[in-house]
Deep mutational scan, measured.
Amino acid sequence: IEEVKKIVSEIQSKQLTRITINGNTYQVNSPEELVEYVRKVFS
């Protein structure tokens, strides 16, 4: 979970619009959307 928080804060600070998780690239339009992807991947 700490690793996830680190990734999320990194993305928020860079305002990235794409994230790659487990080889899948997602278009991310908002931090909320990012959190949803993270929940799916780590749930």
Results as ranks from 00 to 15, higher is better:
1 I>T: 12
1 I>C: 15
1 I>F: 13
1 I>V: 11
2 E>K: 07
2 E>G: 08
2 E>D: 12
2 E>Q: 08
2 E>P: 07
2 E>L: 10
2 E>I: 13
2 E>A: 10
2 E>Y: 08
3 E>N: 11
3 E>C: 15
3 E>G: 07
3 E>T: 12
3 E>P: 05
3 E>V: 12
3 E>Y: 15
3 E>D: 12
3 E>S: 11
4 V>H: 06
4 V>A: 09
4 V>P: 04
4 V>R: 04
4 V>S: 04
4 V>N: 03
5 K>D: 15
5 K>M: 14
5 K>H: 13
5 K>E: 15
6 K>F: 11
6 K>W: 13
6 K>P: 03
6 K>I: 08
6 K>M: 10
6 K>C: 12
6 K>Q: 10
6 K>V: 09
6 K>D: 07
6 K>E: 07
6 K>G: 05
6 K>Y: 09
7 I>D: 04
7 I>W: 12
7 I>Y: 10
7 I>E: 02
8 V>W: 05
8 V>G: 01
8 V>N: 01
9 S>P: 02
9 S>A: 14
9 S>I: 12
9 S>D: 13
9 S>L: 14
9 S>T: 11
9 S>Q: 15
10 E>V: 10
10 E>R: 15
10 E>G: 03
10 E>K: 06
10 E>F: 12
11 I>Q: 01
11 I>N: 01
11 I>A: 02
11 I>R: 03
11 I>C: 03
11 I>K: 01
11 I>P: 01
12 Q>L: 15
12 Q>F: 15
12 Q>R: 15
12 Q>E: 09
12 Q>C: 14
12 Q>Y: 15
12 Q>S: 06
13 S>P: 01
13 S>I: 12
13 S>Y: 08
13 S>H: 13
13 S>E: 12
13 S>M: 11
13 S>D: 12
13 S>A: 12
14 K>N: 08
14 K>T: 07
14 K>A: 05
15 Q>M: 10
15 Q>T: 04
15 Q>D: 02
15 Q>R: 13
15 Q>V: 04
16 L>H: 03
16 L>A: 02
16 L>K: 05
16 L>E: 02
16 L>F: 06
16 L>V: 05
17 T>G: 01
17 T>M: 06
17 T>D: 05
17 T>E: 01
17 T>F: 10
18 R>D: 02
18 R>K: 11
18 R>I: 10
18 R>H: 07
18 R>S: 12
18 R>A: 12
18 R>W: 11
18 R>V: 11
18 R>L: 08
18 R>Y: 08
19 I>H: 00
19 I>N: 00
19 I>W: 06
19 I>F: 04
19 I>E: 00
19 I>T: 01
19 I>M: 06
19 I>L: 06
20 T>N: 05
20 T>R: 05
20 T>L: 06
20 T>Y: 07
20 T>A: 05
20 T>H: 05
21 I>S: 01
21 I>C: 11
21 I>W: 05
21 I>T: 00
21 I>Q: 00
21 I>A: 01
21 I>E: 00
22 N>V: 03
22 N>F: 12
22 N>R: 10
22 N>A: 08
22 N>Q: 07
23 G>S: 03
23 G>V: 02
23 G>R: 02
23 G>K: 03
23 G>I: 03
23 G>E: 03
23 G>A: 02
23 G>T: 02
24 N>F: 15
24 N>C: 15
24 N>E: 11
24 N>G: 03
25 T>H: 11
25 T>D: 05
25 T>N: 05
25 T>P: 04
25 T>V: 12
26 Y>L: 11
26 Y>S: 01
26 Y>N: 00
26 Y>Q: 02
26 Y>R: 01
27 Q>A: 11
27 Q>G: 04
27 Q>F: 14
28 V>D: 11
28 V>A: 15
28 V>N: 11
28 V>C: 15
28 V>P: 00
28 V>Y: 14
29 N>M: 09
29 N>W: 09
29 N>D: 12
29 N>I: 05
30 S>I: 05
30 S>E: 03
31 P>L: 07
31 P>Y: 09
31 P>S: 09
31 P>H: 05
31 P>A: 05
31 P>N: 02
31 P>K: 02
32 E>N: 07
32 E>C: 07
32 E>F: 06
32 E>Y: 09
32 E>R: 05
32 E>M: 07
32 E>L: 06
32 E>Q: 09
33 E>D: 07
33 E>A: 07
33 E>W: 07
33 E>R: 03
33 E>Y: 03
33 E>L: 12
33 E>I: 03
33 E>T: 03
33 E>Q: 07
33 E>K: 04
34 L>S: 00
34 L>Y: 03
34 L>G: 00
34 L>H: 00
34 L>Q: 00
34 L>M: 02
34 L>V: 02
35 V>T: 05
35 V>Q: 04
35 V>A: 09
35 V>N: 01
35 V>H: 01
35 V>P: 01
35 V>D: 01
35 V>G: 02
36 E>Y: 06
36 E>H: 10
36 E>F: 07
36 E>M: 08
36 E>R: 10
36 E>Q: 07
37 Y>L: 15
37 Y>P: 00
37 Y>K: 09
37 Y>F: 14
37 Y>C: 14
37 Y>Q: 08
37 Y>H: 07
37 Y>R: 09
37 Y>I: 15
38 V>S: 00
38 V>M: 10
38 V>C: 09
38 V>K: 00
38 V>F: 05
39 R>A: 04
39 R>E: 07
39 R>H: 09
39 R>I: 13
39 R>G: 03
39 R>V: 09
39 R>W: 14
39 R>C: 13
39 R>M: 14
40 K>R: 11
40 K>C: 15
40 K>M: 11
40 K>Y: 12
40 K>S: 10
40 K>P: 00
40 K>Q: 11
41 V>I: 14
41 V>H: 13
41 V>M: 14
41 V>C: 14
41 V>K: 06
41 V>S: 04
42 F>Y: 11
42 F>Q: 01
42 F>C: 12
42 F>D: 00
42 F>A: 01
43 S>Q: 12
43 S>H: 09
43 S>K: 10
43 S>F: 13
